[in-house]
Design a protein around this nucleic acid. Sequence first.
RNA 1: CGGGGAGUAGCGCAGCCUGGUAGCGCACCUGCCUUGGGAGCAGGGGGUCGCAGGUUCAAAUCCUGUCUCCCCGACCA
Length: 571
Amino acid sequence: MRYSQYFLPTTKETPADAEVISHKLMLRTGMIRKVAAGIYNYMPFGLRAIRKVEQIVREEMNRAGAIELLMPMVTPAELWVESGRWEQYGKELLRFKDRKEGDFCLGPTHEEVITDIVRREVRSYRQVPVNLYQIQTKFRDEIRPRFGLMRGREFIMKDAYSFDVDDAGADAAYEKMYQAYRRIFERCGLRFRAVEADTGNIGGSSSHEFMVLAESGEDAIVSCDSCEYAANVEKAEIRVAETGAPAPAAALQEVATPGQKSIDEVAAFLKVDPRQTVKTLIVTTDTGEQVAVLLRGDHELNEIKLCRYLGCNHLELASDDTVQKATGAPSGYAGPVGLKLRILADLAVKSMSDFVVGANRADTHLAGASHGRDFSVEAFADLRQAEHGDPCPRCDGRLEIWRGIEVGHIFKLGTKYSEALGAKVQDESGKERTLVMGCYGIGVGRTVAAAIEQNNDANGIIWPMPIAPFQVLITMLNPKEEAVRDAAEELYRALLEKGCDVLLDDRDERPGSKFKDADLIGIPLRVTVGARGLQDGAFELQARAGGEREMVPVDKTVEVLTARIAAALGT
RNA sequence: CGGGGAGUAGCGCAGCCUGGUAGCGCACCUGCCUUGGGAGCAGGGGGUCGCAGGUUCAAAUCCUGUCUCCCCGACCA
């Protein structure tokens, strides 16, 4: 591609609405342009990177035996009603009517549609296992789209669905996808972790997320410093030594805490360690019930764990009004003593006694409280968020906390959708069996964003070779000098012939502009063609990632470049 | 959905408080000049100031409504 003929609108300045580095760089390099909140144009340069990722995904999915197809983006309500998700999904599902008043939605994921295909076409156990995938535009009407392609409403996703006769088959399909995903993200040049994850509203029994490690990540993950355990904090288990609480030593006693609401304020005011306090959170479940949850003062509630324990889909912290009604005190002073609600407590509270709690009265707390004596707890359970330094649930190691960008997620679905939609086959004995499913997603645009997030410097992007929009950039310094022009053109032609993705900067610009753009767009290999080098019969070669500038003889350049590319692609 | 902020030329911004019909830098166009790290000089094009209504002789500026975008947020008990 000739730069002078290409569509690559780079900017010196960053648009004011970009926050994270990948978003800024995608705007500055003209990879994307916003059309509406969370909805983007993929400009030519950005599309090239997306296509590279798609191609890697395709190759690895095919290698793992999956088969590509394409489903519609617009899907009829009937299928969603059958699975129960027309009611369940909420506002993220963008619904609309066609001219005949029929209900439709834009597909946020395709379990229903794929299961419909399989139940129509697959009758016999001999037709499975089968794993079908597509790479397609999805739409989820996110509450808060942000960070460019990292959380868009419209985005490109690879989604695969496996069907097996039994759990053993489904487990094998899952394992295959796990390995395929590892290969995909390794090939994309990403530093990532596969972590145990919550299954969320997709459903199913177990799942892993593939997390690209980056400070700007929206998710927190834990990993053990000495074993392989890694999990999303939403899911991370906490191992608690089963020590009983010491016998209460102090008497329950009211203390005045005027204006002191938060744990930090109360602990500082009373001069006690926050670890010697217990906070009482009032939550409202999706059935409208209020439940009190006790946590050690310095711990944080994990809503997902609580949700799972209570068997509800959603819960929220009670509003100030609700807290006032339930406890008789403004929020900040709730406590378990005399409270007429279900009381659950985190395991850490079990081994505590003589702690500080709210008194259910404004400006008042209780010191010397102990469970069993002053109030009773319905159940103790693992309800808190894992923290840095917590003991690993699998070994004697400690947990570390990282931030990550979720680029892939694989689920064992079980029979949730096949049961609801009736996807069954006959087995060898003629008996009907409900198919066991798995589903496997990769955010393609998000993978590109994550790659930029991990590979950049103050001057711009530093593309990993496998997903770089171009592999080589030839910077022709002064196109008006015939020798320079001819040499650069000749190299360009030779590289094209070798099948390289090469961009020739043949613009009549000053060198400074060309070098700045070269740094910004981050093509991995840069060849500078100038009169200075040509005097010695050489081109100047430099990797965007850094390292020495080297002079390469003109007639060796193609050879050197193709070798470097092959090495970087691992081919 | 709640809280905060912002909409003025393609991008980044000033002007608004104290009304008088719009400006700066970059980008763009023309010419000269220049070619190893975003050059210089000269000339030029481009904006119904998000939209609607109101106040006023007069509105980017004051008032009301509305739309859009960005940031923060269930972590407080």
